[in-house]
Design a protein around this nucleic acid. Structure first.
Lengths: 147, 147
DNA sequence: CGCTCATATTTAGGTAGCCTAATAGTTAGG
DNA sequence: CCTAACTATTAGGCTACCTAAATATGAGCG
């Protein structure tokens, strides 16, 4: 409701936005060639604990349904997911990960984790703790952003 | 050189990557309609303290020179930056922000900061401190990633 | 039952923001 | 000077989003 904030909060907001920008850049660089793209990996990770409907996938990824459909169809073509009509509601489609999909996720995560772990090695013990402490906060901010 | 890391570092890497993903999502949502795009704002902010050459802008943004040129030309068309040959090196082009550009940056930052500050209001004092402490760490990680 | 309205997905077409490769102009070193 | 290195632009392509419209199913109600 209020349009004004504690100035320190506004300063922090500015710094946080700058960190987000750097994060976007880093996230992009983490895409190795000839592997899953970031978008594909995110989608596959999302359904690795059980199939979901297209709409749920889109909502969880924070994208629109047609964008999710597009990714899903591509993943289906290369055999990483299956699409089946939801038995309870034939309007809906259940998207499930295949064995090949699971393997691809594991491989991609390992590769990317190794890249990031290498970067984290350059940090002091204290910096690592500071980073670790902030990750749940970022997650919380995101949740409140989802509305 | 080594391909294996402290497993805790790998776990942290996984969590950090997940936070980056959320950050990408948030960053995208912060783009208000009818305003500067995130890419435009980043570029303009970069030159708001003084003109830079196209190559420097690209390097600082972590993008390739042709991508920077493209953005710069668009910004020039709407009067937010000027392009002038570098007096010391006529191969190079100095890109400078205009008054309209400065105003646009200010407006865009205020809007986005207000959006983020609103989110940050939902955090506890401790969470705010944890977030603030981690931002320089993220910046450091990014620097080491630049190579 | 049959209408109508809501819901779930797909299709069609468009955009932003990256990329690589090729081109043109400028500088600098042998 | 002439060749190699550098700076920027042009051309063409890709990914991952988007909105609007089409299709199909489900659900409520008179």
């Amino acid at each position: 409701m209020s349009d004004t904030f504690d100035p320190r909060l506004t300063d922090l907001a500015q710094e946080f936005r700058e960190a987000l920008r750097l994060g976007v850049y880093m996230f992009r660089r983490l895409d190795p060639e000839g592997d899953l793209t970031a978008a594909q990996l995110s989608l596959l990770s999302m359904i690795s604990d059980g199939g979901l409907r297209v709409g749920d996938i889109a909502k969880n990824l924070g994208i629109k349904v047609p964008s999710a459909t597009e990714q899903i169809i591509k993943l289906e073509r290369v055999g990483l997911v299956t699409r089946q009509p939801d038995p309870d509601d034939s309007r809906a489609v259940q998207v499930a990960i295949t064995q090949a999909g699971t393997a691809a996720v594991e491989y991609a995560n390992q590769r990317r984790n190794a890249m990031v772990a290498e970067l984290l090695q350059g940090l002091s013990k204290q910096e690592i703790e500071q980073l670790a402490a902030a990750l749940p906060v970022i997650s919380k901010i995101n949740s409140s952003f989802q509305k």
